[in-house]
Design a protein around this nucleic acid. Structure first.
Length: 504
RNA sequence: CGGAGUGUAGCGCAGUCUGGCUAGCGCAUCUGGUUUGGGACCAGAGGGUCGUAGGUUCAAAUCCUAUCACUCCGACCA
């Protein structure tokens, strides 16, 4: 009926970026909004992607000496009250449990009953509950360091939500460590930042800038917050991970004390660090195109999908046998240390429909196998990243599949890095700053400038301008952030340089 | 919490102003057929307490009152 759209996703990125984002998620069947306000249902394809992220990160955590544990979902309200800044930061977005029972309300419905003595908070993050445990576990310097991670869900009652980027409940990992010295805790904080940056670039193919948050953007209760910042295709920044040096703020509030080698009682130095399902949002907005999701091979739930093509049952048997043996050969190949993941899609669907289904889901390589290919001992191969498609001898495909996937992985990173670098500029005066962040086509698809590298005297000095333009200080980059220069706004001497951008 | 808007089939909507036959349309689903190296076509079928509660009326998706939910724009944020 309808003639095929030019792109699998409408609208395109150019036409309406936020709507495009939603449509990519829908088209790829990653997740959907749930009946519960602000909460999402992560569907199998999206969850498989998350599981792959988890698997890789979990290994990286273990390789750096961490162990997994699990702490309660509920936190007594009094725990949260202990660290003043922490309370202030999270109080406005906490879900509170006040009752432990339901009873009939006499009108056919239910009402809460059995009020709790002390309300429980559904964890927005677990520093306080984990700290309380550490206070018990730690007596001596011999008990340190404690290096623990937990995979969990947390709840932050956000007003405006968007799938993966900001939802009321989200999945994440949170590392919590305690150390005998500040130096050691700092080293841990920086080490985990490196782990995140490494993961983002090597596995997600998302280039990131490592930096330090300014006081205004810091995690509530932290002394230093490090972050990795990525640029999305609409040139907005997305914070993709954070690593906090908490100093002794939490240990003092929670009495995490130990006896040092010299016999003194000292407060421990703690850190925390986390990444969440938001990474999926980062992945989408970095690589997806107007035909839908594009997955980096190292995280793709499926590397290769084979689509058998046949007319009748005789052909079907022949083609399927060929596909299965092909799959067997491909699965013996490797991408790094992973075996190649291959699916055969033999559903009773038309070829075109099937093709677009996998395009929208971002499967890196599509193979089509029909009688003609069998006759030539070949397969028809299409790459999701470049759209390139051609017939390839079967033997050659099997030999090179690992290299092709690796090439795709590298290609995605290169493409994303080029995009970011093209839209990163050094700005030295207010005029240029203003015009850089003025949207080009404001109505439906704001293009949001990009990353501006600017020297500035202080957060307070630039705040009015930033508020006006809806720009934020993303971070003081570890690379070059402390070289002196002239403030772009006041022209005065400035000791620091930051990345400025509009942000998610 | 301020401003605006929307609730009708799985999804997207029309119908509401001006009350009136059995509540429609597109997509999706199912069945049969023709097709099949590219998001098919033809024929048929299933699927609705019109957000909820009350009121007005011979008659309510439509008018009135109340209420709930959601969306968008602000303020707030991984």
């Amino acid at each position: 009926m309808n003639k095929p759209a030019k792109t699998a996703i409408t609208p395109t990125r150019q036409q309406d970026y936020p709507e495009w984002y939603q449509q990519v998620i829908k088209g790829a069947d990653l997740a959907e909004n749930s009946p519960v306000r602000g909460c999402m249902v992560i569907k199998p394809w999206g969850y498989a992607l998350w599981e792959n992220m988890q698997r890789v990160l979990d290994k990286m955590f273990k390789d750096t000496g961490h162990q997994n544990a699990y702490f309660p979902l509920f936190i007594p309200m009094s725990f949260l009250e202990k660290e003043a800044q922490h309370v202030e930061g999270f109080a406005k977005e906490c879900a509170v449990v006040t009752h432990h029972r339901l009873e009939p309300d006499g009108k056919g419905g239910l009402r809460p009953a059995g009020p709790l003595e002390e309300p429980l908070i559904v964890r927005p993050t677990s520093e306080t509950i984990i700290g309380a445990c550490y206070a018990k576990w730690i007596q001596s310097y011999r008990d340190l360091p404690i290096l623990i991670n937990q995979w969990a869900n947390v709840v932050r009652w956000e007003m405006r939500t968007r799938l993966f980027l900001r939802t009321a409940e989200f999945l994440w990992q949170e590392g919590h460590t305690a150390h005998a010295t500040a130096e050691e805790a700092m080293e841990e904080t920086r080490k985990m930042l490196e782990v995140y940056a490494d993961f983002a670039e090597r596995f997600m193919a998302v280039p990131v800038i490592k930096g330090e948050k300014t006081a205004g953007e810091r995690f509530p209760g932290a002394v230093i917050t490090y972050c990795i910042e990525a640029m999305m295709q609409d040139r907005k920044a997305l914070q993709a991970g954070t690593s906090h040096f908490l100093g002794q703020n939490f240990s003092k509030a929670q009495e995490i004390k130990f006896q040092s080698q010299s016999g003194e009682t000292e407060f421990a130095w703690t850190t925390s660090w986390g990444v969440s399902t938001r990474l999926i949002g980062a992945l989408i907005m970095t690589h997806a195109d107007d035909d839908g999701l594009v997955l980096p091979p190292r995280l793709a739930p499926s590397h290769v999908v084979i689509m058998p093509i046949y007319r009748d049952d005789t052909q079907r048997a022949e083609v399927l046998a060929y596909c299965k043996s092909l799959r067997g050969e491909l699965m013996l190949q490797r991408l790094d240390d992973q075996t190649i993941r291959v699916d055969i899609d033999d559903r009773d669907l038309r070829g075109g429909e099937k093709k677009w289904y996998h395009v929208k889901r971002g499967v890196p390589i599509r193979l089509e196998v029909g009688p003609k290919d069998i006759a030539n001992q070949a397969v028809f191969m299409a790459r999701r990243d470049t759209g390139e498609s051609k017939s390839v001898p079967r033997v050659e495909l099997v030999e090179t599949i690992g290299a092709i996937l690796e090439d795709m992985q590298n290609n995605l990173l290169k493409r994303a890095t080029a995009m970011r670098d093209e839209n990163t500029v050094t700005i030295t005066n207010e005029q240029d700053f203003r015009s850089f962040f003025k949207s080009e086509n404001e109505e439906n698809s704001p293009i949001n400038g990009g990353f501006a590298k600017c020297h500035f005297v202080s957060e307070d000095a630039v705040k009015p301008l930033l508020d006006e333009l809806k720009v934020t200080i993303r971070c003081i980059p570890l690379d070059g952030g402390t070289t002196p220069g002239k403030c772009f706004l006041t022209g005065k001497d400035a000791a620091q340089m930051a990345i400025f951008a509009k942000a998610y």
